[in-house]
Write a protein that binds this DNA or RNA. Structure first.
Lengths: 344, 344
DNA sequence: GACCGGAGTGGAACCGGTTCCACTTTTGTA
DNA sequence: TACAAAAGTGGAACCGGTTCCACTCCGGTC
């Protein structure tokens, strides 16, 4: 466990100056005679020399590192997103610091401070919705921020990558309406987020297209954190005129919602038709397999990374950009036509 | 986007030397007059000063950072493990660099190099099984390594945190034997890993206890990566005298295995009783809910972190340590007694 | 043959912290 | 009151890279 060699050790051993070694390390930073380059490379290999990231970072002022601030790795959607982003970043030679917020604004604020201390060049995040000024300050300090999946309306200056929320919600709703359902429950994200609002908008737009009026009682916007999904399920089903179909359009609450449905023992799709937002591995292992709006996680990962790297390299126009990718509707077996009851 | 203040800016603004500011920043590093401490803290707050991690790291030689090298965040087991470790580490003021290997030795090797460059003090990992010399070298360089969930037999010097593998497998097997099953399929990890071997050992031990001989055909050790689980399921069920019960004891292959069972359309538990290792969120959403060996992810996370931090602070005896935690058997509805067929 | 420009090289400053050490001031004790 | 020990302070070296700049060789051009 003797200490690692430094650039000066390499220089000495190779009989050159540190400048030369540095230039070998960073091609394009200056000329080096082929013979010496060869020599230096051999010494580096013999000594097992590796440049220390901290030293480089200190002198150049930034790191090829981005932060990823995600709600909760225990949720398959975020976990897969993280997986793809980490993977994709690596292929660009960029490291990723993964932080989780557990949907807690304080932890989110901490995470941002930490990332700032580490001089990351960019951050990809699913924001909790709070810390508005903090996000703004981060950006003012030159850190490139990209929101993915969700955003905060107050922060119009921030890049966003998400699915076509209005359209996706509209299609899911129209699918239900097309099956004859007229009372369709909707569990969405907080109206304080653009995601929540857009999906509600799509839901309403579908109803308009079918000339069916919307019962506001059937729309539940619940927080990302906690067990809001389960509770909403409970209260929706307790309604005297309860819904015959349910759309869970809050990614973070899908598990909670489905778990409650299973606990209650509702028969799907006979008693309740269900569509959920995002295609976790287990959605086709349930009984019946769930019809889903599939968020193209790869696309979200690729675009958000491309955006943040593009900004870091300054090769993007300054105007904030919003990228919306199309989400697939994947019909499986959790929806069925409404059985017309002659009584009503 | 003006540049961030440095410690010298703070010193100037507060009318003191950088030494004093540094001592304020690091209590216990020397005395500071209360009035000046007060003054410095106020200036720090006004300027929004934050010490740059890279500078500190360069001068002290290491970081309060650990690496987490995990197979695959898309797998709920690893994702939850990562979630808990990141969370737990934060409460100790330690940052975590998450890397994924996708079970690929090359990516694993890359990850280790990267972590080395970042001067991490420790690494928690679910090793792929390869890169034996690389792990050894890492440790020789003073990086504290803790394996979690799996290990590599060649590396006896490395700390390990896992569940009681022999015992867990034995109990699962005995549960099946107790229900009358005599032909029990086992899908385990590679025999090259201690985990794989221990679980097979537990399986055999249970058979001994019941004085039932083991048919080696029923044991399938499959790789962590790929679709080995699904394939094993297929070939086990294709056996002329196929098993009436199945234990999936390879964490990374549970999803693959269950997916195949669902595709084939085997009726659980009527045609096949099933127990899987590790309790993902979806295991109780399937139909029927699966009986599982629940790996106490929190315990795995807490212990592995404690171990790596303990070593980093040098407050642990040098001998390598193995911590085995007890795993719960959670019976649900995927196992039933063997219906005795009078024909055989 | 004088001159120019580019390739190749090394010295040294610099990034922003920490820490050692020498120095001054205060406090405590005989 | 005298003097030692402790508290408080600032200067400067140091960590290990990058980069600017001055300088020495070259070969090629009038």
């Amino acid at each position: 466990m003797k200490k690692a060699p430094t650039i000066r050790d390499v220089a000495t051993a190779a009989g050159v100056s540190v400048s030369v070694v540095s230039r070998v390390l960073n091609p394009d930073s200056g000329p080096v005679a082929p013979a010496k380059r060869e020599m230096v490379l051999r010494v580096i290999d013999e000594l097992g020399y590796r440049p220390r990231a901290a030293a480089r970072e200190l002198s150049v002022g930034h790191t090829p590192t981005i932060g990823l601030v995600v709600a909760d790795l225990a949720n398959p959607f975020f976990a897969q997103l993280a997986d793809r982003i980490v993977w994709e970043a690596r292929s660009h030679g960029v490291q990723v610091m993964v932080m989780t917020t557990q949907e807690d604004p304080h932890l989110e604020a901490d995470s941002l401070d930490t990332l700032l201390d580490r001089s990351v060049g960019g951050v990809i995040a699913t924001p909790t919705g709070a810390n508005v000024e903090k996000w703004a300050r981060l950006q003012a300090l030159g850190v490139n921020v990209v929101f993915v999946d969700r955003t905060i309306p107050e922060l119009a200056e921030v890049d966003l990558v998400s699915i076509e929320n209005v359209d996706s919600a509209r299609r899911a709703t129209e699918h239900m309406l097309g099956l004859g359902h007229t009372r369709i429950g909707l569990i969405s994200g907080p109206v304080g987020t653009s995601t929540g609002r857009s999906r509600i908008q799509g839901y309403q737009s579908a109803h308009n297209n079918f000339s069916i009026s919307v019962d506001p009682q059937l729309i539940r916007d619940v927080l990302f954190r906690g067990d809001g999904g389960g509770d909403a399920v409970g209260s929706l089903l307790a309604l005297p005129d309860h819904p015959t179909a349910l759309i869970v359009a809050n990614t973070a609450q899908v598990q909670s919602s489905i778990r409650r449905l299973v606990q209650i023992g509702v028969r799907i799709p006979d008693e309740l038709s269900v569509i959920v937002f995002d295609d976790n591995p287990w959605t086709e292992l349930t009984s019946p397999p769930l019809s889903v709006i599939r968020q193209p996680i790869d696309m979200l990962a690729v675009h958000s990374l491309e955006l943040v790297l593009g900004r870091m390299q300054g090769r993007l126009p300054p105007a904030p950009r919003t990228i919306e990718v199309k989400a697939d509707f994947v019909p499986r077996s959790s929806c069925s036509p409404l059985t017309l009851s002659p009584i009503s």
